[in-house]
């Protein structure tokens, strides 16, 4: 079960107001600096698996319509934090989350928030392509169907086509929409999964090492796609590859042993890290 912050009602309102003004202020600053407003804002997030604490007091703002890369050695908590953003950790019994995560200023761990609806707004792409053992068409149509976005027929056909086009897969699969999605190549399957996430029209897309099971050519295609998608979606990507982070992300966050060490513009972090640990990791001294 997920433990939620028990804040006094009055306190909550206060915090909210404070946070909202904070967000607004930040957004204003960002606008002045030619940056993007904050989409996701996390404060003091800690995650526990049973007795073991996996994430310590993470505070971070993630900008809208940019690619934010989480980097760091294995087991550093970057995937764990990613899974907090769409509350996928709820599906793990022993996992509990403390702290506060807001999307567009609304607390996603508020008891009034339905995680099922949240996950429709915050899509996720996994490490290994996981198309359902259904046809390509049904893979895409699954999300819109369960959320009642479109009934079968031309409206659904349109959603399927748009999603596949945005995922850059349409030309490759338009003649075999009714063949099983599991019959595609690894890279195509991963783009199918991205199309599937896009089909429910999310604001945010979380990607958990989306290219680690792909060959270099398929990886290049997915990276190209990520770059195109950032015009519409806020993207958070967990990656093991420094080069990938450099290629696709505008901002980067470095995690180490469950702590968030450093957040910065990707270019700046890679050329001029402020923390010694970041520098060691980037230059390949560990990890």
């Amino acid at each position: 079960m997920t433990t939620l912050d028990t804040t006094e009602p009055s306190g909550m309102i206060m915090t909210k107001t404070a946070d909202n003004t904070g967000t607004l202020a930040k957004a204003a600053t960002a606008a002045r600096a030619g940056e993007h407003e904050t989409k996701i804002s996390a404060a003091g997030v800690s995650v526990f698996y049973g007795e073991k604490q996996a994430l310590f007091d993470v505070t971070i703002d993630i900008p809208a319509r940019q690619v934010m890369a989480f980097i760091g050695p294995s087991g550093c908590g970057k995937s764990t934090f990613l899974r907090c953003i769409n509350r996928m950790n709820d599906t793990i019994d022993i996992c509990s989350v403390k702290g506060r995560i807001e999307i567009d200023g609304a607390d996603i761990y508020d008891p009034k928030i339905d995680p099922v609806l949240l996950r429709a707004r915050v899509g996720m792409v996994f490490q290994k392509p996981n198309p359902f053992p259904k046809s390509i068409y049904d893979n895409i149509a699954y999300g819109p169907r369960i959320h009642g976005v479109a009934k079968a027929g031309s409206a659904m056909d349109e959603i399927v086509e748009t999603s596949l086009q945005r995922a850059g897969l349409w030309n490759e699969v338009k003649d075999r929409l009714h063949e099983p999605g599991t019959g595609l190549s690894g890279g195509q399957q991963q783009r199918l999964c991205i199309a599937r996430a896009i089909a429910v029209n999310p604001d945010v897309i979380l990607m958990d090492e989306p290219c680690s099971a792909l060959d270099p050519i398929a990886t290049a295609k997915v990276e190209e796609l990520i770059d195109e998608l950032r015009t519409r979606y806020t993207i958070v990507i967990v990656t093991h590859s420094m080069q990938q982070a450099a290629r696709v992300s505008q901002k980067a966050a470095f995690f180490h042993l469950g702590n968030l060490i450093e957040v910065d513009e990707t270019d700046r972090m890679f050329t001029n890290p402020t923390d010694q640990r970041t520098q060691d990791y980037i230059t390949g001294r560990f990890g």
Binding site: M124, F132, G143, I146
Partner: peptide
């Protein structure tokens, strides 16, 4: 595979769905 469950949950499916 667990990834099928994750995939469905990540799209906002309920447990029964």
């Amino acid at each position: 595979p667990q990834s099928m469950r994750d995939g469905a949950y990540a799209l906002g499916a309920t447990k029964a769905e």
